[in-house]
Amino acid sequence: MRIEIPEHKRLVFEMDIPIRWGDMDAMGHVNNANYFRYLETLRIEWMCSIGCAPAPQGEGPVIVNAFCNFYRQLEYPGQVLAKLYVSDPARTTFESWATLERTDQPGVVCAAGGATVIWVDFPKQKAAPLPDWMRAHLQG
């Protein structure tokens, strides 16, 4: 199945993720929980690549909503090409979107998901405005 990413979403990062033998379940395909792990890995690697390292005593991103739609099974062995898109920066939030496809089947999306991200002041446990440097990454 081919998925169109709407224009207002901007590609910001992509990476390959190996499918591990242990990612599969008794049915012989990647367990649905592992798709969320792939999406999490993609978001974290992007965050680290732009200098947004975890800062438990400061501010940073928190996922408040996550989803994944499954279109085709992923199976071992293989590599997943994960692509991350962002959109809709608001005062304290932005949207992230992702596609997962096998590297040996370019353009054929096996799953697509996303997450709403909120910027948080961790010591205060409250939402905080997106910093200018993060907004610049989101808007390109």
Score class of each variant (00 low, 15 high):
V62L: 15
R10Q: 12
W133F: 09
H137G: 07
A112L: 09
D132A: 13
S96N: 05
N32I: 07
V64K: 03
P123A: 04
L84E: 07
V12T: 00
P54D: 13
Y35H: 10
V117I: 15
V30M: 04
G107R: 11
V80S: 01
V62N: 06
R10I: 10
A33T: 15
G60R: 10
V108Q: 13
N65E: 10
M27G: 12
I5D: 07
P89I: 14
A82R: 07
L42K: 14
R10P: 08
E75Y: 14
G58Y: 02
R2P: 03
G114N: 04
P89M: 11
V117A: 00
L84N: 15
V12F: 05
C68G: 03
A33P: 09
T92E: 02
Q139P: 04
D104H: 05
D104Y: 02
G51Q: 01
V86R: 12
I3N: 04
Y85D: 03
P131Q: 12
M47S: 10
V86Q: 04
K126P: 04
I3F: 13
R72V: 04
D23L: 08
L42C: 15
K9I: 00
E45H: 08
E40W: 12
I3A: 01
A112M: 10
W46C: 07
D88Q: 14
W21M: 01
T93P: 06
K126A: 11
N34S: 06
V80C: 03
D132Y: 08
F36D: 13
G60H: 04
E75G: 12
D104K: 08
P77W: 09
E7Q: 05
M15P: 03
R43P: 11
C68T: 00
A55C: 12
Q79V: 15
L100M: 05
F36V: 10
H8P: 09
Y38N: 07
I50M: 12
Q125F: 00
R72Y: 07
E101A: 11
M47K: 07
I44H: 15
I17P: 03
Q105Y: 03
N34L: 15
S96I: 06
A26W: 07
V108H: 02
V86G: 02
H137P: 02
G22D: 15
N32K: 11
E101T: 07
W133Q: 13
W119E: 03
P18E: 05
V80L: 01
M27H: 14
V12Y: 00
I63R: 04
K9M: 09
V80R: 02
S49N: 02
P131M: 09
M15I: 06
D132C: 10
W46R: 06
E95R: 14
Q125Y: 00
P56E: 14
V120A: 07
W119T: 01
A111Q: 06
M24N: 13
L11C: 06
V86C: 05
E59S: 12
I118R: 09
G28R: 00
T41P: 04
L81I: 05
Y38V: 01
T93Y: 04
D132W: 13
W133E: 13
C52W: 15
L42S: 11
H137I: 01
D25R: 06
P18I: 02
P89N: 11
R135Y: 00
